[in-house]
């Protein structure tokens, strides 16, 4: 019961912070909508898509990129959480979290899941707008995608936490944008199917195939159309375990980050 209290306390703080930062919500929503309304409209004309699972017929490019844009929301949200962790560490607010008597893995895990809940709200808001843009997966798909969103959110959030543990100063965060977010997003199946990549460059195809973000996107895509992609699920689970394990190591007082100054 006390553990639940801790989790609910951390989750309600994240939600309160989110509701107090309306700009963050709109920025999170506008970014994928710009891609959907402008980028996808332009690319629809030049990019042909064959029938690829989970789709059972030809789909418009807008339909194809929606799961990728859901992943994009979660990727940016994970990095936003990472940024706020670095900020909290610089201001000292992080210390008050870590001096709680509860285990550090549990505190970090609670913060992680709380951040994912915030990202899921953003994804559903985006899917609601996309519905009016004629991107309409099966109604049950909106429910089926929830576990996929939670899993992919936890993986991307864990990566964000891990990155936050390696960044010493807030100023260094711009590097994360250039070296993590953009390569992860563009070298993935979020915007183009994997077979398209092979046509362009076998190396790029391999990079995209190994990119954990591709698997998060595919997990979301298949779930949205009521299917399960076992490889994507396995990769997401394994990557989550690795990223979160490394984060707990880095935040351990006997090792990692807190040994250094």
């Amino acid at each position: 019961m006390r553990w639940l209290t801790v989790f609910l306390g951390i989750a309600s703080r994240e939600l309160l912070r989110f509701t107090h930062q309306r700009e963050r919500f709109f920025a999170a929503l506008v970014r994928p909508l710009v891609w959907l309304f402008i980028f996808a409209a332009g690319f629809r004309a030049v990019l042909g898509l064959s029938i690829t699972p989970p789709y059972q017929t030809y789909v418009l490019y807008e339909v194809y990129i929606v799961p990728g844009l859901c992943g994009m929301i979660q990727l940016f949200n994970g990095m936003q959480s990472s940024l706020s962790m670095v900020y909290d560490r610089e201001t000292g607010a992080m210390r008050t979290l870590l001096v709680s008597p509860f285990p550090r893995w549990f505190l970090l895990g609670s913060k992680l899941v709380a951040g994912v809940l915030v990202s899921v709200i953003q994804v559903y808001a985006f899917l609601a707008v996309a519905w009016f843009w004629d991107v309409r997966p099966p109604a049950v798909g909106y429910l089926a995608v929830l576990p996929a969103l939670m899993l992919s959110g936890v993986m991307l959030g864990s990566l964000g936490l891990l990155i936050s543990s390696t960044i010493r100063q807030l100023e260094n965060f711009a590097g994360v944008m250039n070296f993590v977010i953009f390569p992860m997003f563009f070298a993935s199946t979020a915007l183009y199917p994997l077979w398209r990549m092979r046509d362009a460059s076998p190396l790029l195809h391999d990079i995209c195939a190994f990119n954990p973000f591709s698997h998060a996107v595919e997990l979301i895509r298949f779930a949205l159309y009521l299917k399960l992609e076992p490889v994507a699920l396995a990769v997401v689970l394994v990557c989550t375990a690795i990223f979160f394990g490394a984060t707990v190591f880095m935040y351990n007082p006997e090792k990692g980050l807190w040994r250094r100054r």
Binding site: G9, S12, R13, L16, R17, Q21, A93, L97, S100
Partner: peptide, 19 residues
């Protein structure tokens, strides 16, 4: 400082109580 400036005093204290 460790207070969250965007939250009220009560919200801050509730958060720390939960921790």
């Amino acid at each position: 400082r460790a207070l969250d400036l965007d939250l009220t005093l009560r919200q801050n204290l509730r958060y720390h109580a939960a921790l």
